[in-house]
């Protein structure tokens, strides 16, 4: 099956709007779900410096959370359908852009002593995502896809584990958005 046909297949599955859909781009911003503010973070995390770090870290954490989720979904589709063209879709470009942007912000992130280890975990998660992303373009030339997928899967797990270790409810770094979720009892 051609890449074009697979692209059509993916679009059939996801249906209505693509990420670059004009209608989506026109939407007005809506308020973010409530997360701890800076004052609450200072109280929770103990120092202004740490709170500033946590605030700056949020968007990076969110980007990596999404990159990991997207990569996992694409790998499932590619592996189950045996169509590696799935990983050449524009969603991979989106993912790469998000990963690149996150990398730039990690570079600029100031991590005071107590959170230096935390930053290392964020960096490791970013690094492992990068290894998966960089393998995607090489898939079509690989002869043993299962071995390659296994390696990618291991890197993805490492990325997830590092990001999980960097999670903190106090800092608003959470893996699952429970707002409005099945478990939300409205308290």
């Amino acid at each position: 099956m051609s890449a074009h046909a697979d692209s059509q297949t993916f679009n059939r599955i996801v249906g209505i709007h693509k990420p670059d859909c004009e209608m989506l781009m026109r939407c007005d911003p809506v308020p973010e779900a409530p997360l701890p503010g800076e004052a609450e973070l200072v109280a929770a995390l103990g120092s202004e410096q740490t709170a500033e770090y946590a605030m700056a870290c949020r968007s990076i954490y969110e980007d990596l959370r999404r990159v990991i989720g997207q990569l996992a979904g694409l790998m499932i589709l590619a592996r189950v359908t045996r169509k590696i063209e799935f990983v050449e879709l524009e969603q991979v470009d989106n993912c790469t852009k998000r990963w690149t942007d996150a990398g730039a912000r990690i570079g600029a992130l100031k991590a005071p002593g107590p959170v230096a280890r935390h930053k290392q975990q964020i960096e490791a998660a970013h690094d492992f995502c990068g290894r998966v992303l960089k393998t995607f373009p090489q898939l079509s030339s690989r002869t043993d896809l299962d071995v390659t997928f296994d390696e990618m899967g291991e890197h993805l797990k490492q990325a997830y584990q590092n990001l999980s270790r960097a999670s903190s409810h106090e800092a608003g770094l959470v893996m699952v958005d429970f707002a409005n979720a099945c478990c939300s009892c409205g308290r």
């Binding site: 996801v14 693509k18 979904g73 694409l74 969603q91």
Partner: peptide, 8 residues
């Protein structure tokens, strides 16, 4: 697939 889409 829609999860991949939503994350983007």
């Amino acid at each position: 697939a829609k999860w991949v889409w939503a994350m983007s």
